[in-house]
Amino acid sequence: MKNLIIRGLSKTYLDPYAGAHVTAIADVSLEVVQGEFVSIVGPSGCGKSTLLNMIAGFIPPSRGEILLDGRSVKGPGPDRGVVFQSFALFPWKTVLGNVTFGPKMRGVPREERERIGREYLGLVGLAGAAGRYPAELSGGMQQRVGVARALANSPDLLLMDEPFASVDAQTRMTLQEELTRIWQERRPTILFVTHDVEEAVFLANRVIVLSSAPGRVLAELPVPLPRPRVWAPLVEDRDFKALVARVLGMVRPA
């Protein structure tokens, strides 16, 4: 099983302006089982993105260890796909060029990788946009490309860093529903970071609540809501509302 195991993870960095050490993450331990969809939710500035960046290998932890499939994480790698809040698409590559970038780096021959690229573009509903440049697409479409690009590399773990925070509210709901559909179809392992409690509950099988700085694990709650998940009935659902209220109570103590 390709599980993610995190033990005693901490991150302290030097604030160049305050001239003091700041602890962003303090002693976090958690596990994500293969095929799971886990949300991490917490107030702004609780270090949840720091946590994600450490798992992605972009920044080194100060203490503790991160194991994926039993191997220690030493830096960024194609076994962990990342979807960024700012999309981070390559502006000089077409949509297809972006999605096939990962397979190209693995040395997959052109025809094969274009077939893979088109398959994943189809999965996110962008089969017709293959030849366009990212700047010619709307924000919602750009992030679909971002998701397709990360998935096309068949990573063991998909890390999503507030991916829908910079699109408008209606598009965000559509994207959230699509993400749950894709997860049901393909069962990728997803770790999803957000400050939006409703989003966290709507998407995940399990929600991990972080405290404000320094970030610690406050609680882990299972989300026993049935799938497929669709906003229209769910906003009225009593279980959903109760769960959201409970998490909100932890994120914003009165």
Binding site: Y13, P16, Y17, A24, G45, G47, K48, S49, T50, N53, Q85
Partner: peptide, 12 residues
């Protein structure tokens, strides 16, 4: 974290 990164980059 975003703030941290950006400030870091700015400082650079």
């Amino acid at each position: 974290m975003r703030g941290f990164r950006r400030r870091h980059w700015r400082a650079d």
